[in-house]
Amino acid sequence: MLLWPSQIQPSPATEAYVAHVQKVAATKPYLLIAHQYTRYLGDLFGGQMMGGMASRSLNLANGDGTAFYAFDDIHSPKDFITEWYTRLNGLELTEVQRYEIVDEANRVFDINIALLQELEGSAFNAMLTLTINSLKSRLGFAL
């Protein structure tokens, strides 16, 4: 019998994030592109840097504690991201949908910042917030 489900509860920000994703999936599923962009591509792109920083600053060895940033099936992050953008740009989206996706991506960055702010006292809090803000300002949404 697993005890952790009765002992660990999602934080308020996590519950809000889950509710938001469920609403988007039910009402405008094309907005999930923004979630894939910010989470998956952000973790792939920024994760290479974050995993290395975490390993060095916490003296981790052999990938311990950084498996979240390991994408073993993606041999070239650059090629993967290029292909992802190519497919994104090939989608038949209206101009309104494109703007909605960009707005949703900005909303997702803000949601993730709220999640990180709940981790007060975490050694990663400042580093993750800086990384997300950096990604938010540097990564363009090629539509």
Rank of each mutant, 00 (worst) to 15 (best):
L115M: 14
L93N: 07
R107S: 07
D43P: 03
T82I: 11
L88E: 00
A123M: 14
V21A: 14
E100T: 07
A26I: 03
V21K: 09
A123C: 10
A13Q: 12
Y37K: 03
L44D: 03
D43K: 02
L143P: 05
A13H: 11
S134F: 13
A123T: 12
Y17L: 14
R138D: 12
S137A: 15
D103C: 10
I111R: 13
E104R: 06
K136L: 05
F45L: 08
T129P: 04
Y40I: 00
L44S: 07
V102T: 06
A61F: 14
T66D: 10
A25H: 10
T66E: 09
S55I: 03
N133V: 00
L91P: 01
A61D: 04
N112H: 15
E15T: 08
L41H: 01
R87C: 01
I8Q: 10
E120Y: 10
Q36M: 11
W4T: 08
T66F: 10
R107C: 02
L31T: 00
S57C: 03
N133S: 02
G47T: 06
G46E: 04
T38F: 05
A54G: 01
L139G: 00
D79L: 04
G46P: 11
Y85S: 01
S6T: 10
R87F: 00
D43E: 15
Y85D: 03
M1R: 03
K23I: 02
P29C: 05
E95A: 15
E92A: 13
T94A: 03
F45S: 10
E83G: 08
A34M: 03
E15K: 14
Y17N: 12
A54I: 15
A19W: 05
I81G: 06
R138F: 09
S6E: 13
G121H: 05
A19E: 08
E92L: 11
R98Y: 02
M1W: 07
L130N: 15
L115N: 13
F109R: 05
L41Q: 01
E15S: 13
P5A: 10
L44T: 01
D73Q: 11
M50P: 10
A61S: 14
A34N: 04
Y37E: 05
L3F: 11
I111V: 04
A70L: 07
L115C: 07
I81T: 09
H75Q: 12
L44R: 05
T66M: 07
A34W: 02
Y30W: 09
Q9Y: 10
A114G: 02
P10V: 02
Y37N: 07
T86Q: 12
K28A: 13
M53Y: 10
A70F: 07
S11V: 01
R87W: 00
S6P: 01
L116R: 09
Q36R: 06
Y40M: 02
F71T: 01
L91G: 00
E83N: 12
A54V: 15
A26P: 04
F80A: 00
R87D: 03
K136E: 09
L115I: 13
E118N: 06
H35L: 05
M50L: 15
W4R: 05
D43S: 13
L93I: 07
L115G: 06
A67R: 13
L3W: 03
H35T: 02
R98M: 14
L93T: 07
G46F: 05
G140A: 12
R39M: 10
S11W: 15
T27R: 07
I33P: 01
S122V: 07
L41E: 01
A61I: 09
D73A: 14
I111A: 14
L143R: 04
